[in-house]
């Protein structure tokens, strides 16, 4: 079956030919940039100086570029950047370089606003150079047009890579958070405790259920205390997840108590008309623990 080929690969990167056609960049465009490369590359030092001046007035300048070696490195990177820009060839090497630029920006956490500003500044310098060169008007327009299109393509790759890196970071953080967040503990023989903190969605609730059921099977616990005092929002969905967990534990012969129900949560539950069924609830974890001990025929008393 011949499906329209997507420019997105599995890792979210693009195919050079495809992107060139998206940005309407022809061989002619690349060729004319290459033809006039001397105009720009000869004045690269001037452009870099002007750009450095521009950079200095950025609010984050002190934070990112206080070290002179850093700014030196950044400026030297521009040689490579603009050299590639005017080679007249946009291939995998070109793409790989632009992606590295995006990754670097993402890693140091430089905002995309600053990046766009920097590109915009360079665009201005290039136009100035072009004006001084006084080319025939048709050629002038062609070069300016090609310059803008290729610059936009560069920006697209960098932004794409930047986003991809940020998304990856968030995904990794979410995963590690999930793993940390379900410490089902046996606090007494036959009693499990799980203090819940944070947001409960369906994936998290499944995670909690699996961890709890595994622990019950392992410890043969008969009481399970689910403390929700750390749960920010309890709405219909969250309440249903919690009820589902208590139902599941009951099927394994383990009774659940939901503790830490605040007045606000109690109010929400009733106002939303949520049927909590047979689920036992208590305001404090102390009450829940007392109840669990009583249920197991134990009591705590002063010596």
């Amino acid at each position: 079956m011949n499906v329209t080929h997507s420019a997105h690969d599995h890792d979210g990167t693009h195919d050079p030919a495809e992107l060139l056609s998206w940005y309407n960049i022809s061989e002619d465009d690349l060729a004319i940039l290459h033809k006039h490369r001397g105009l720009f590359l000869d004045k690269i030092e001037v452009m870099k100086d002007r750009w450095h001046d521009w950079l200095r007035q950025l609010p984050d300048y002190e934070y990112y570029f206080s070290d002179p070696s850093v700014i030196e490195h950044v400026l030297s990177q521009h040689d490579r950047y603009w050299e590639l820009f005017f080679t007249g060839v946009v291939d995998d090497t070109y793409f790989a370089h632009r992606r590295t630029v995006g990754q670097t920006h993402a890693r140091i956490g430089l905002s995309m606003t600053s990046y766009h500003g920097g590109m915009n500044a360079f665009h201005g310098y290039a136009i100035d150079i072009l004006k001084e060169a006084s080319l025939p008007s048709e050629e002038h327009i062609h070069v300016a047009d090609a310059f803008v299109k290729l610059m936009h393509l560069d920006t697209a790759i960098v932004v794409d890579t930047y986003n991809q890196m940020v998304t990856e970071t968030i995904t990794a953080q979410t995963r590690s958070l999930m793993e940390m967040a379900t410490p089902v503990t046996e606090i007494w023989s036959g009693i499990l405790l799980l203090p819940l903190v944070g947001i409960i969605d369906s994936e998290r609730s499944r995670e909690i259920m699996n961890a709890t059921l595994a622990k019950i099977s392992q410890t043969q616990a008969r009481m399970f205390i689910l403390d929700i005092s750390g749960v920010g929002v309890v709405d219909t969905a969250v309440a249903n997840h919690l009820i589902k967990i208590t139902r599941a534990t009951r099927l394994m012969g383990c009774e659940s108590i939901i503790s830490g129900v605040s007045p606000a949560i109690a109010q929400t539950i009733v106002e939303l008309g949520i049927d909590v069924g047979k689920v036992k609830t208590t305001a404090t974890m102390m009450d829940a623990l007392g109840g669990a001990f009583r249920r197991l025929g134990k009591e705590i008393r002063d010596l």
């Binding site: 499944r206 259920m209 699996n210 059921l213 595994a214 019950i216 099977s217 589902k244 139902r247 599941a248 099927l251 394994m252």
Partner: peptide
């Protein structure tokens, strides 16, 4: 009842 069976029933 096994944990896996219970989780499946809940799903």
């Amino acid at each position: 009842l096994r944990p896996g069976v219970v989780a499946a029933l809940m799903d």
